[in-house]
Amino acid sequence: MIKTKSLTKVFKVGFRGRKVTALEGLDLEVKKGEIFGFLGPNGAGKTTTIKILMGLIYPTRGDAWIMGSPLGDVSVKRRLGFLPENPYFYDYLKGEEFLHFYAQLIKMPKRDRKAKIKDILSLVGLKGAGDLQLRRYSKGMTQRIGIAQALLSDPELVIFDEPMSGLDPVGRKEVRDVILKLRDEGKTVFFSTHILPDVEMVCDRVGILVKGRLRSVGNIEELLGGHIKSIEITARGISESVLKEMEPLVERVIKRDESLLLSVEKEEDAEKVVDIIQSSGGRLYSLIPQRPSLEEYFMKEAGKR
């Protein structure tokens, strides 16, 4: 759906035209039907990439294709929805008026418009806000009307730039739900973010961009290696002597009131600890394998030079 080949953007900044490379040699491919999370710290070049894909800025070098069409092909935008970062719209328009205007731009037949706009407004949770001027919208509502305009043409591919930034937890969940719904409908979603838990919850694959270069691409399991970092065991009713017995196997012990939180590194050790707890009459409450989080991985990648 999206393909880029050594995409590079060099900006000239300031009076002297000092060159700043925002993006360097990006090779990326987003496949049909997947949810692709584009990660990176601020200033990594995520928005630059998206703006190039949307034809808002021109690449210095390299090529990109959207649904097989090269950049600059306007007709492909009929099958594409886009939400920019911190979107802002004509604030003198009412929600419904705004969507009517955009419906004209995508040449939606007049007879379909009313029903479609009503559907979209309820999909993004803005039912009843269609009569309100956009200047009266809260940040979350603006984000939602932005998603509404992106979905207006029932696009095959959706590109969101930081769709969750600035939203409260409820708003973020709603955006996640919209993305998951799009996946159920077989659409392709490409979105940038730096909110990692959201990515872990919805993305099929991620790409990590740092300082204009793509550090790694793959599905989250692959990237994180799938191995278990440690195992956390919670138990109750453990006497001091039993605890002494377990000590060599346990990495860390945290006492909370009656219960004990034991952190164990190896699987075999965990089994032994469980045996000891059960044979000594203690109660086992939980046993949770700990995987390295995307956040840890991300921090490691972002920190590399």
Partner: peptide, 14 residues
């Protein structure tokens, strides 16, 4: 300046 142009140009408009 207000970035309203971003979404306009994301529609099939030259």
């Amino acid at each position: 300046d207000r970035r309203t142009i971003y979404t306009i140009l994301s529609k099939p408009i030259k």
